[in-house]
Design a binder for these strands. Structure first.
Lengths: 215, 215
DNA sequence: ATGAGTTTTTGTACACGTATAGAAAGTAGC
DNA sequence: GCTACTTTCTATACGTGTACAAAAACTCAT
């Protein structure tokens, strides 16, 4: 053992991450602030920055932790259906945690322990006949779609909670029916139509299109 | 004219918005802060809040302003191709303005003066044989994909600029080749493969899939 | 024991968005 | 001219993430 030098640490990365988990669990996402977290681990805010580069890194660690416990459903054999099932499981798992949205845009791979999902999707795409390059592209396309959908749904939810005037209401009142006949025709129905969950429809369309492209 | 009462305004919404435009133009997105903007229009920060509810509302106004000048390309007749062209134009226009990303998640319609895009996409979808309901769903799916792609690309760009260690590097070093053979096989090539712009490929796949679903 | 070097923690400070309270500057009725 | 009322603007304050500098607590060489 190489006998560490320097001032002995009072807190560790692991302490911070687990305290963050507790905090979120107990008081919700909103109370996860660097200052609050520091109090929780019994240190000053800036001490945290010795163990994590920034708050975003902390969130990524949190996500990674959590991702390890994400469900890995039985996947069907048929490649297209396999892609769909894996992607839906991924989205399902991420949707449960509203705060992940802040961090999703980080990359096309979102957590080390969640690599199972891209692996399954890419593998299924290859089995469906795509080259490895195209399979990677397919995964990323699916990922972009998924991230966009989660983000949008979360934003819509937040809007609703805050009781903010949805943009649409204003839009559809003074609409120029000449220039925008379809939207005018839709009118009030927009709101009703856009609460529906169309993720699966879109995903299936996407997969069908991606696989058809190579045939 | 109804002879306004109360203290006469020193600044207007329009002043604020145009000052914000100037500021962004001159010094970049980063310097658009409420305080800086207030200095620019010659008022205190809180004065702004009498004219805009939020910073987010300000950004939406900005976006709306700009969206009015977004290109409206000639669209081909064939419905699928029409959808693709319109969506690509929309993405192209939004990509030019990195800051829109902060605001994209707002809604599935992002600006009053940009309603032309959904109109064209929905209309083309209907012409392709979809019901109006399905056409709306198709638009929203395309929107989610587009928003996700723009977001991710912007995040990747920012990472690169900040010289942050891309997550992928770490990921692909200690990879378990047993559990994740495809990713292991890809290895270093991931970085190379993921700089490619696959938006159009994905979009075409999506449109093909969406239109095939109704046949 | 002393001093140098290393690592971790603290203290102070800044700019951010914005809530809240109250002052300022007008018009309308008397 | 005075008072009410209304609108707009200012002052102050809070909590946020985090940069920077200094202090603290340890090991090791002398």
């Amino acid at each position: 053992m190489p006998a560490r030098t320097g001032r002995p640490p009072k807190i560790s990365r692991a302490d911070i991450v687990s305290a963050a988990h507790r905090l979120i669990e107990a008081e919700g996402t909103g109370s996860l602030t660097m200052r609050r977290l520091a109090r929780e681990v019994g240190a000053t805010p800036m001490a945290l920055y010795h163990h994590v580069h920034d708050k975003e890194e902390l969130l990524l660690l949190l996500l990674d932790d959590y991702a390890a416990a994400m469900p890995r459903p039985q996947l069907p054999d048929e490649p297209g259906e396999r892609m769909v099932t894996a992607a839906m499981a991924m989205r399902e798992a991420l949707s449960g945690w509203p705060w992940v949205v802040e961090v999703l845009r980080a990359d096309d791979l979102f957590a080390e322990s969640a690599l199972w999902y891209p692996e399954m999707i890419i593998d299924a795409a290859v089995r469906a006949g795509l080259t490895l390059e195209r399979a990677v592209a397919a995964y990323r396309i699916i990922w972009h779609y998924t991230a966009g959908e989660i983000s949008a749904r979360d934003a819509a939810r937040r809007r609703r909670e805050e009781g903010r005037p949805t943009f649409r209401e204003r839009v559809f009142t003074g609409l120029d029916a000449q220039a925008l006949p379809r939207l005018a025709e839709l009118g009030e129905r927009w709101a009703e139509l856009t609460v529906r969950d169309t993720y699966e429809d879109g995903l299936r369309a996407l997969v069908r299109g991606l696989l058809a492209a190579s045939a």
